[in-house]
Nucleic acid binder design. Sequence first.
DNA 1: CTACAAGTTCAAGTTAACTTGAAGTCAAGC
DNA 2: GCTTGACTTCAAGTTAACTTGAACTTGTAG
Lengths: 141, 141
Amino acid sequence: MLTITDVSRRSGVASSALRFYEERGLIASERAGSGHRRYPRSVLRRIAFIVFAQRIGLTLEEIGGELAKLPADRVPSRRDWSRLSGRWTKRIDQRIAELQRLRSGLTECIGCGCLSIDRCSLANPADMAGRKGPGPRYWLG
Amino acid sequence: MLTITDVSRRSGVASSALRFYEERGLIASERAGSGHRRYPRSVLRRIAFIVFAQRIGLTLEEIGGELAKLPADRVPSRRDWSRLSGRWTKRIDQRIAELQRLRSGLTECIGCGCLSIDRCSLANPADMAGRKGPGPRYWLG
DNA sequence: CTACAAGTTCAAGTTAACTTGAAGTCAAGC
DNA sequence: GCTTGACTTCAAGTTAACTTGAACTTGTAG
C-alpha cells in the first residue's frame, strides 16, 4: 500500500489533486488507522488513464463516467482497460480530424485567395454555413 | 460599418464576448456619436482567426500576441494573414503529433501486454521517463 | 521527549474565458 | 411623447480543475 506522497511522486500528480480526484469519485483510497490514505498499486494505472484522458481533452466528469464503467468489485483486467482505450482512441481520431479540418480552413482560405473576397467562408462563415448555425461553428463540427 | 449585433450574428460570437475581446485588445472598434460600437468589415476576418486559434488550443493571451504582430496602420494583407496561418498550422501539427503519441501509448500499452506488468511506462511513467520529470508528463511532451 | 515532516479537513482563492445583472442611454416606430 | 429594443459601463457571478491556507493530528528520527 502506498501513501499519498508515494502516489504523487510516482504519478506526477499533486497530492491535492489526488484528494480532489477522490472527492470527485475518480479514485478511491483505504485509510490507515491514523486516518491517512493508503492506495493499492492499481491506482497508478487508473491515474495514468485519467491523465491520458485529460490530454485527449476529456473533462473530469466525462472521465469519471468512463471509469465508472470499470468493474468496482475487482482490479480491472487488461480487457477492461482495453475497452476504455478503444473509446478514447476514437476520441483522439475525432480530434485529429477536427484539427486537420482547421488546418485545411487555414491554408486553403489563404492559398485560394478567398481571403480577398468577402464571401469567404472563413472570414464570413454565416453566409456559407447557413443551416449549420451561425459563425465559425461551421469549421468546428 | 457594422453594429455589435451585426458582428455577433455574422461571426457567431456573443456581443459580450466581443466587448471582452476588445477589453483584451484582440479587436478594436470605432464609436458612433451615440457611443455605440461600429466595426469595419475586416473585423470579421480577425474574429474568425481568433475562433480558429482557440480551437487549435491557443489561449486568448497567445492569440493577442500573434494578432499584435499584424500591422496596426492598415488592414492586414493576405500575406500578413498567411504568416499567422503558417505559425498556427505548425501548432496544429504539433498537437496532432501529441495526439498520435497519446494514441500509441494507449494502444501499445494495452496491446503489448505491459499493462500486466508494473514497470509499464503508462502505468508507472516515473520509472521509465526518468529525467523527463515526474509522472505522465512523459507522454505529454 | 522533542522536533518536524507528512497527513487530515474544510473553506476560500486562482485562472481562463466569458456571462449576467444592474442601472442608465439611445434610436425607431406609432 | 412614449414604448421598446439595442446599446453602454461596471461589478460580480460561473465553471473547471485545482491550489492554498488555516488549524490540527500523526509518524519518525535523534
